[in-house]
Simulated scan of single mutants.
Amino acid sequence: SALRACAGARSAELGRAVHRDALSAGLSADASVCDALVEMYAQCGDMEMACQVFDAMPERDAVSCNVMLAGLLGHGGLSPQATEVWRRMLGEGHKPDSVVLSTILCHHPDDGKQGLEVHAWVIRHGLETELSVANALLEMYSRKNDLGHALSVFESMPMRDLASWNAIISAHRQDFRVLMMFRRMVDSGVRPDETTFAAVLSACDSLGLVEGGMRLFSEMENKYTIQPTVQHCTSVVNMLGKAGMVDEAYELTSKRACLGSEPTVLRALLHASSVHANIRIAEIAAKKLLDLEPDNAHHFVTLMKMYENTGRFEDLEKVKKMMRDKGL
Rank of each mutant, 00 (worst) to 15 (best):
D161E: 10
R160D: 10
C44R: 02
A171C: 07
A12F: 08
I279C: 10
E59M: 03
C44M: 04
Q227S: 12
A12Q: 10
G8H: 11
N296S: 10
H172W: 06
S11Y: 11
E194W: 10
V190G: 01
F54V: 01
A36D: 06
E39Y: 00
G311N: 11
Y307V: 00
M306D: 03
R280T: 06
H298I: 15
A82P: 04
W165L: 07
F54D: 00
L137E: 07
H298M: 11
Q231R: 11
R183I: 00
K95I: 15
L105R: 04
D111G: 08
K321S: 04
L69C: 10
K288M: 12
V99W: 08
N238K: 11
T129Q: 13
Y307R: 02
V178S: 01
A2P: 12
E262D: 14
A163P: 02
E128D: 08
M181C: 09
M89W: 04
H75N: 13
D111K: 12
K242R: 15
V210G: 02
S273P: 02
G76K: 06
A203L: 11
K288L: 09
E308Y: 03
A82L: 06
T234K: 09
R10N: 11
G241A: 10
V237E: 06
V99D: 01
E194M: 13
G26R: 06
E251M: 13
V100L: 07
G126R: 06
A5R: 02
E262V: 08
M68L: 13
M57G: 04
H19N: 01
G126Y: 11
M322W: 15
K144G: 03
A2N: 15
E130C: 11
G327W: 14
E48Y: 05
L252T: 09
D161G: 09
K144T: 05
E251S: 12
A42W: 01
A171L: 07
K318E: 14
T253W: 01
D61N: 15
A268F: 08
N238T: 13
A277V: 05
R124V: 15
H108Q: 14
E117N: 07
K321H: 01
R256S: 10
G208I: 12
Q231A: 07
G208R: 09
A56E: 14
H107N: 13
E251P: 01
L69A: 09
L216W: 01
M304K: 06
T302E: 12
T196C: 13
C204I: 02
R177N: 12
G71V: 03
E317M: 05
D315T: 01
E139H: 13
R183G: 04
V122P: 05
L316N: 02
Q81R: 14
T196W: 05
G148Q: 14
R87G: 07
M157I: 01
P80R: 10
A272S: 13
G189T: 07
L14P: 01
N135K: 04
M49A: 03
T302Y: 12
T310M: 07
A70V: 05
